[in-house]
Every structure is written in structure tokens, then in C-alpha cells.
């Protein structure tokens, strides 16, 4: 027998099997710990049926309160995105290890890690304690979230650029800021726009939620409606939030179309939305 015939054709999978078994064992243990059982799910389903029954038809009678909450959510999302993008651009930039010395990039990376550590709701609770109830706390909370997300991805995008293009610009005797403007930014601009539109979308969703902890927006109205068992009004609010998120998605696709694919506004209105949607998904996978 030749040595080749005795060699295993694939790598040994013993450890992968052990891992799967351990995962299965943990799932069973966790179900037992948390009292997850078939009976509880069955009784929960009948509760859910009752709850959904009371949600329909949705009740838009208090539409003024609804519109006020939605407007506030939209404002929170827009301001937090603008502020977050403006701050994460320089922070992400100095966090890139290929352009900055370690003593500059490490503090910036710490800021980014700190901003990413907590869920926006936890940050919102902290800001409600600090600046009081209302939209300002929501704006600050979502700004922190934006810095964490865009800053990290932007720094990573800069770390992946081609240094040959940068070298050529340096060789012309360009000062540092011109090297950035001509050698670095053009390579990462399209991805930066992608991160920003994704974060706007994410801020829009989160801005409907921070109200639950008193940080402004439609979330407060939603939470109050839940507690008063006004399920038909809850349904109206949920439908409005879905509409808001969809509008935000269309806006984000438009922005990506203009900045990344170089389309004009006229192109966008000529029914290219379907094609853009497919591209939008691809961009997210790239991110």
C-alpha cells in the first residue's frame, strides 16, 4: 500500500463533532433551567391569538399623537445620524492603524469599543439620567451607537486600502492632508456612504424604541398604549413604524444610488428601484 492511500482525504472532524454535541447538551440544559416547555408554548399561543384579535381593526383615532411621536423619532434619527457621521469620520480615520502611529490609533479604538459595548437602550437610560427625559437623551444615545458602528467599519475600510495609490500621491510631494484627500478618501468614500445609509436605517429603527425608556420619540407612546391595553392603537403605531422604516429604506437606496452607482435623480424615478434593491442587499453583504 502506498503512503498516499493510507492518508485521510479530509481533515479529522472529531472536535467539530464534540462541539455540536456540547451545543445540543447546553440547549437542553438551558430549556430545563428556564422552564421552556411545550405546554407553556401552547398556552402562550392562545394568549397571542387573543392579543392579535384585539389588535384588529387598528385604531387611528388619536392620529395627532401618533404623528407627533413619529416626527420626533424621525428628528432623533436624522440628528443622531448627522452628528454620529460627523464625529465618526475623524474618529474612524485616526483609528486606522495603517495611517496613524499606535499612540494615536489606540485611544481612538478605545473610544469606538466603548461606544459599541452597550445596547442603545442601555446608553439611552444613562443619558436620560444625565440630561433628563426627552429627545436629547435619544439623540445622544443614538449618536454614540453611530460612532461605534461607522467608526469601526470606516477604520477597517481604511486599513484595507491599496497603499500603492497612496505612495504615488506621496511621491508628488503632496502634504499630508492632500495625500488623505487624493490617495485615501477616494478609495473608501463609496463604502463610507454605504455604512452611513445603513446606520441611518438602524437609527430610524432604534429611534422608535428609545422612547420606552423615556428618551423621546414614538416609543413612549407605544409603551403607554401597551400598558393601557389599547391594542388597536398599538397596532396603528406598529403599522406607522413599518411605513416609516420602509420610507427610510427607499431614501437609503436613493442615496446609495446617487453616491455609489452614480445615478441621477431622474434615473431613480424611472423605476430602477428594483435593480437598486438587489444592489443594496449586495452592498450590505460587502459591509
Amino acid at each position: 500500500m502506498t503512503p498516499a492511500a493510507t492518508a485521510l482525504p479530509f481533515r479529522s472532524r472529531t472536535w467539530a463533532r464534540v462541539g455540536w454535541l456540547a451545543l445540543a447538551a447546553y440547549v437542553i440544559y438551558a430549556c430545563a433551567q428556564l422552564d421552556v416547555s411545550a405546554e407553556r408554548i401552547a398556552s402562550g399561543l392562545s394568549n397571542a391569538a387573543h392579543f392579535f384579535g384585539r389588535m384588529f381593526p387598528p385604531n387611528f383615532a388619536r392620529w395627532d399623537l401618533l404623528v407627533k411621536g413619529l416626527k420626533e423619532s424621525l428628528e432623533i434619527a436624522a440628528l443622531a445620524s448627522a452628528l454620529g457621521i460627523a464625529l465618526s469620520l475623524p474618529i474612524g480615520f485616526v483609528a486606522a492603524r495603517n495611517l496613524m502611529p499606535a499612540w494615536v490609533s489606540w485611544p481612538a479604538r478605545l473610544v469606538i469599543v466603548a461606544a459599541r459595548s452597550f445596547h442603545p437602550v442601555i446608553v439611552a437610560i444613562l443619558f436620560v439620567k444625565a440630561v433628563g427625559f426627552g429627545a436629547l437623551a435619544g439623540i445622544l444615545a443614538l449618536t454614540v451607537a453611530s460612532i461605534g458602528f461607522i467608526g469601526k467599519l470606516f477604520a477597517e475600510a481604511i486599513e484595507e486600502i491599496s497603499l500603492k495609490q497612496v505612495e504615488a500621491v506621496r511621491a508628488t510631494g503632496a502634504p499630508f492632508m492632500s495625500v488623505i484627500g487624493f490617495g485615501v478618501l477616494p478609495q473608501v468614500f463609496a463604502r463610507f456612504i454605504g455604512f452611513c445609509t445603513y446606520q441611518l436605517d438602524s437609527n430610524l429603527r432604534n429611534s422608535t424604541m428609545v422612547g420606552i425608556v423615556g428618551a423621546g420619540g414614538i416609543g413612549g407612546t407605544l409603551f403607554a398604549a401597551f400598558q393601557r391595553f389599547d391594542y388597536d392603537y398599538v397596532c396603528a403605531i406598529l403599522i406607522s413604524i413599518i411605513a416609516l422604516i420602509m420610507a427610510g429604506e427607499v431614501l437609503a437606496m436613493g442615496v446609495r444610488g446617487i453616491f455609489i452607482d452614480g445615478l441621477s435623480l431622474a434615473d431613480l424615478f424611472r423605476g430602477r428601484v428594483g435593480r437598486l434593491a438587489a444592489q443594496g442587499e449586495r452592498h450590505l453583504e460587502d459591509d
Binding site: 491599496s162 508628488t172 487624493f182 477616494p186 478609495q187
Partner: peptide, 18 residues
């Protein structure tokens, strides 16, 4: 070593960045 996403004109003018 051209800056791929810039136009030809921008690449040529980058010779003046100094």
C-alpha cells in the same frame, strides 16, 4: 499606481498637489 476611483484629470492634477 493611479487612484482608481478618481478621474483621469484628477489623477493628472494630483501631480500638482505639492
Amino acid at each position: 499606481n493611479l487612484v482608481e476611483r478618481l478621474s483621469v484629470m484628477e489623477n493628472v492634477l494630483s501631480g500638482r498637489l505639492g
